[in-house]
Design a protein around this nucleic acid. Structure first.
Length: 470
RNA sequence: GUCCCCAUCGUCUAGCCCGGCCUAGGACAUCGCCCUUUCAAGGCGGUAACGCGGGUUCGAAUCCCGCUGGGGACGCCA
């Protein structure tokens, strides 16, 4: 029987869910779903000074937004300290770990010295064979890392990576405050949670040999590893705040659709021939490490924006109408709690959706549909609401007043009538009307605009425009 | 500095594993044209890349070595 796939996403709650973390989560999720496996969420909060509950909340919220559902967890490492300590105890008893009494400052000093002298910065092992405790000092526990031979990481993406054990040092597994450290807790948890595939960022590749030694010391089977290429900013350095929005929630606030973000993220490092747009089902069906590249990728906001637009164009107007409401409120186009005719809003959205790259843009373009009063843009007014267009507008208003069918089909002949009577091009009528209706020169097709606005508002705005000329 | 990883258009990438089909394909961005009541969307076309040097081979983007460049890790962070 084939081994059941179990993977995990293990963020530390020291910040929001960021782009890089989201992609790691996504790849884990895809791998689990592709194989019908289990996706586990584990919170690595052993650094108690930097971890907060608020960030745990933020991370799970981000994952919910992205639709990355987990099957087990969230587990918190702080709930498992007793477990880790028992493992530490075991290693201590077996002589595979030892107490180290070196002070933080001393270690830092030695590191600086090593750096200055161009030597490798590694712990010199001076407490390795200590027989007695050092009085007045609270020790840490270090793992006794084998110094001979080499360790091979068989990575699903990188292939075979060999490390010389002599470069590895004795890492601290239990701090002086009795709390365990990352490289130790990952191993213990991955063993306890029966993780079969460790899928994480490239930055962990160097930790892997250390962890492999811990697996071996504990006598456990080593899982498969897959190290994902990093995501870099435009300057090719690690993605950080300097590169602008890195928190996933910031993208929600800017009006991105979660499926657009996940689609973009998955294409950073993964491909399926020439295909750019994928449904969730396709992603799950096609996903495989074989198509994951090994080079780091630069995050390109413009392509994300394009993808978002593609998803907005394809989205159901009704859904977009629901999603756009908070943006309308934020932009004060509606007041908090204002009742909206959602069916009407969906119709309005439909005329605008292929013109919006974000929900924010969609909201602002909705303004003239919703507002009671519109204001004319100065240049637009000068150019189109003048003596030249006045007779056109007057005639059109009269014809429209008599028009019973305010649909595209009903409106078109009315406009055509005015156009023919005056011997002008459609644009000569459409542009002034556009300004009259929207205040500006850009909008959906003029018939669509009138259709959404309705007869009453149309006539009102026409009247206002006519008056503004006189 | 030491170790590890990486290297195709500005960017994301296909091709590389299993050399010839590659005068290197797609997408974003950009430029031009078309469509057109405006703006979009859409269509068509253009500019644009195998980092360098050595091998191996009849033949290399594809295999090997070196260099260069970039990234990452070297924490009582994860």
């Amino acid at each position: 029987m084939k081994e059941q796939v179990r993977v995990r996403f293990a963020p530390s709650p020291t910040g929001h869910l960021h782009i890089g973390g989201a992609r790691t989560a996504l790849f884990n999720w895809l791998y689990a779903r592709h194989h019908g496996g289990t996706f586990i969420l584990r919170i690595e909060d052993t650094d108690r000074t930097r971890s907060t509950d608020a960030y745990i909340e933020a991370i799970t919220q981000g994952m919910h937004w992205l639709n990355l559902d987990w099957d087990e967890g969230p587990f918190r490492q702080t709930d498992r300290f007793a477990v880790y300590r028992s493992y530490v105890e075991r290693l201590l008893q077996e002589g595979k770990a030892y107490h180290c009494y070196c002070a933080v400052e001393e270690l830092e000093q030695r590191r600086q010295l090593a750096l200055a002298q161009g030597r490798p910065q590694k712990y010199d092992g001076r407490c390795r064979d200590l027989k007695e405790a050092v009085p007045g000092r609270v020790p840490v526990v270090r793992f006794r890392t084998p110094q001979q031979g080499e360790t091979v990481v068989d990575d699903l993406i990188r292939g075979r990576v060999v490390f010389d054990n002599s470069q590895l040092d004795d890492l601290i597994i239990l701090r002086s405050d009795n709390s365990p450290t990352y490289n130790f807790t990952v191993v213990v948890d991955d063993v306890d949670m029966r993780i079969t595939h460790v899928i994480r960022g490239d930055d962990h590749l160097n930790n892997t040999p250390k962890q492999i030694h811990i697996y071996k010391a504990l006598g456990y089977e080593i899982p498969k590893f897959a190290h994902l290429p990093m995501i870099l900013g435009a300057d090719k350095t690690r993605l950080s705040k300097r590169h602008g929005a890195t928190s996933v929630m910031a993208y929600e606030e800017m009006g991105y659709l979660p499926e657009a973000l996940t689609n973009y993220l998955v294409r950073l490092g993964w491909s399926h021939g020439d295909q750019e747009v994928f449904s969730r089902e396709e992603l799950i069906r096609f996903f495989s490490f074989e198509n994951v590249g090994n080079a780091a990728a630069v995050f390109n906001p413009e392509k994300l924006l394009w993808l978002n637009q593609q998803y907005i164009i394809a989205a159901a107007p009704g859904r977009l109408a629901e999603l756009v409401v908070p943006f309308l409120a934020k932009q004060q186009i509606i007041t908090e709690g204002q009742a909206l005719d959602m069916a009407w809003l969906a119709r309005a959205v439909k005329t605008l959706q292929e013109r919006a790259k974000t929900l924010g843009e969609l909201a602002s373009s909705l303004r003239y549909y919703i507002a009671e009063e519109i204001t004319f843009q100065e240049k637009a007014q000068e150019k189109f609401l003048n003596e030249k267009s006045l007779p056109l507008l007057k005639d059109l208003k009269e014809a429209l007043a008599a028009c019973a069918d305010f649909s595209h089909a009903g409106l078109e002949p009315v406009f055509k009538g005015v156009v023919e009577k005056h011997g002008v091009k459609l644009g000569a009528v459409a542009q002034p009307v556009r300004v009259a209706m929207t205040g500006g020169t850009e909008s959906p097709g003029i018939y669509e605009v009138l259709e959404v606005l309705g007869k009453e508002k149309t006539l009102q705005r026409l009247e206002k425009a006519i008056l503004s000329i006189g």
